[in-house]
Each structure stands twice: as structure tokens, then as C-alpha cells.
Write a protein that binds this DNA or RNA. Structure first.
Lengths: 178, 178
DNA sequence: CTTCATGCAAAGGCTTTGCAAGAAG
DNA sequence: CTTCTTGCAAAGCCTTTGCATGAAG
């Protein structure tokens, strides 16, 4: 699907977002999706996709709304409701991946990004990505054993990241409690 | 911690909940926790723990509240707020494990139960447990590589369980859509 | 008796939705 | 022009909390 070039527009160069090469920019890919659903290309959807794919990072709806509010003026404003609606569409379109971290929903790039899982630091709430082919094998083995048809998985390893561990031990002064 | 017998009461026999043998019943274990926190043993907490550990299954707060409402009369009634408060305590005491499945929080036995992960059927919402020592090794290897101190992990493999897959293909009649 | 727990109802997050006004095609 | 979108405010979930009453130790 990602590698399908049959619907290629005149945009010749491939895009490199991270490590996987894809033939359409997220923007183009999204428009393709919208068209296929009889939906429309609006300035709000364009602004949002543009912003979301500007850098690769994890974010939640609220952060995105804040960032868009600071960034856009008058015309291109994107309301809270529209952000939520667009996020759903982006997930459905396969551009974003949604995951729940405790109570909040966190999003990350999916389109053009390789399979990966996360280390979650419970101290600073940072998410560190890692890849493991071994895990995919394990997943298949387990599924086979249970007659289960896998569509995906989510692994989150929680603990304390290196940076936080160092902060804790180096000079455990009252200041570190802030 | 689970194997610690230093505080053993006169209950001589070990309890077998699933596969791991423990020295205190969940009820006793909880009382121990409550005492250590200066909290009290109340009829509500007793009824709740009793009910929750009667069978090994996954449940959410609402299901538990419904079940308790049907089961208990007048005196032993447990209010919604109390259920939520008790669930937090049981998690903190290490008796239950909490995990989020989409939007809802699901609980399962932790005390006296072996480490495991889940296959989640997105069709019927069933959770199938499995164990994998290989996964633990993988977890450690990844953590080591990132200087990460692991406290736990959660792996959920999603897809379609055997039963649902069979329903889908055997006689795909309109009746199956109900 | 003193402190902790409970039930109630109200308040909180986060997310979704109905609706009228406004764009896209 | 017709249909899809948007923004707004209201409503919905699920969960938490303040407070007065009641139970545990």
C-alpha cells in the first residue's frame, strides 16, 4: 500500500520521512484518502497535516491544539472539534498511529515510518522508540499457537530512562524535587 | 514480596490462584496492606475483594459496579465512588493490575498470578492470555541497549480470535451481522 | 472519641455531537 | 446549488472529589 506507485501524481521524487521511502507526501496521501471518501480538501485539514508532519514527535490532541493556536491567525484557525475530527481521519487514513498512555491519547507518525515499539519513562514521560524483528517473530509464533489472526501489536516497556536515572543519583538534593 | 512468609497468620495452607502459590489469601493480603497504611477493614472492601477474586476474569469498573449491585443488598451495598477508590487501592496493593484497552480501563488479577501478556480480539473484545519468557529476555536486551531501567511492560497483540474468524467464514449470512 | 470511610451529588478531564452558518466542488 | 465542513456550545463518558454522616478501632 505504502509502496504502491500506480496512482502517482507528477511529483517525481520520493519522500523520506525517517527511514521508509514513500511516493507521496503526507499531504498528497491524505488528499488521496479524502477523495476516496468523498471528503474535501480544506484549509484546516491542510494546515493541520502540514504542522503534524513538520517534525517527527509524539503529541496529544491538546498539545496540537495549543501549537496550532499559536501558529495560525484568523483564517487558518483550527477549532478544537476540527482537530479531533481530523486526528480520527488521519488515523483512519493510516497517516497517524494512536496509542493510549495512561489516560491521554498520544499520536505519532505512521505513514512513511517503520514499525517500532516504545520505552516509556514514567519519570519524564518520554517515549523512546526501538525496533525488534525478534518481536515480530515472537508475535507470529504466539498467534499461530492460538489460531489468532494478527493485525498488529503494541508493546510498551516502562521504567526509568538513562537521563532520569542519572538525575536521581547524582546529587540527590532538594532542588531535584522541583 | 509475594513469597514472604514472615508475617504469616495461622492460616497454614497455601492458596493456589491459577499457577502461583501464595501464602495469604487475597483478602488477608489486602488487610495486611490496609494495616500498613493505617487504613481500615470495612464491609465494603471485604465484599469487593471477595467478589473480585471469586473468579479469574478481566473486568472494568462499570461491570464490577453492576455485578455488586445485583449481588449485595442494603447493608453491603458498595457505591460507585467506593468501587473506584477500592480499585486504586487494590492496584497499589499489588492485587490487581490495571490496563487501558482503548478508552476503558480493564482490571485483572495480579496477586498469585504469573506474568503474562494478551491477545486482544478486536471483534469480540476477548482477552486471551499467554506467557513468553523470550519476551522477557527481549525486554532486557532492549533496555540494556538504551540504559533503561525496566519496571514492567505491556504487550497486546490485536487481531481476530479463532472463534470470530470461524464465524466470519462459516455461512456469512446477514444474521451474523447482529 | 478520634480518625478514616462511605455515599451522594457535583465537578473534572477529555472527547464527541447537534446545529446553523460557511466553504468546496 | 448541493453537499460536506466548521465552530460553537452543549452533552457524554468515565473518573475523581468535597462534604456531611456513619463506622472502625
Amino acid at each position: 500500500m505504502i509502496q504502491d506507485t500506480s496512482q502517482l501524481t507528477d511529483a517525481a521524487a520520493d519522500f523520506s520521512l525517517g527511514e521508509v521511502r514513500v511516493s507521496l507526501s503526507p499531504q498528497e496521501r491524505f488528499e488521496e484518502y479524502l477523495q476516496s471518501k468523498g471528503k474535501r480538501t480544506t484549509s484546516q485539514r491542510r494546515v493541520l497535516v502540514d504542522h503534524v508532519f513538520a517534525r517527527h514527535e509524539h503529541f496529544d490532541a491538546d498539545e496540537l491544539i495549543d501549537q496550532l493556536n499559536k501558529k495560525t491567525r484568523g483564517d487558518d484557525r483550527v477549532s478544537r472539534a476540527t482537530v479531533y475530527r481530523a486526528l480520527d481521519e488521519l488515523v483512519e487514513a493510516g497517516l497517524l498511529r494512536k496509542m493510549s498512555l495512561g489516560s491521554r491519547s498520544v499520536y505519532e507518525h505512521d505513514y512513511g515510518y517503520p514499525q517500532h515499539d516504545h520505552l516509556h519513562c514514567t519519570q519524564c514521560d518520554d517515549l523512546i522508540e526501538f525496533r525488534s524483528d525478534e518481536l515480530l517473530k515472537l508475535r507470529e509464533a504466539v498467534a499461530r499457537e492460538h489460531g489468532f489472526r494478527v493485525t498488529g501489536h503494541r508493546l510498551t516497556i516502562s521504567g526509568i530512562c538513562r537521563a532520569c536515572a542519572e538525575k536521581r543519583h547524582r546529587r540527590p538534593s532538594p532542588l531535584d524535587l522541583i
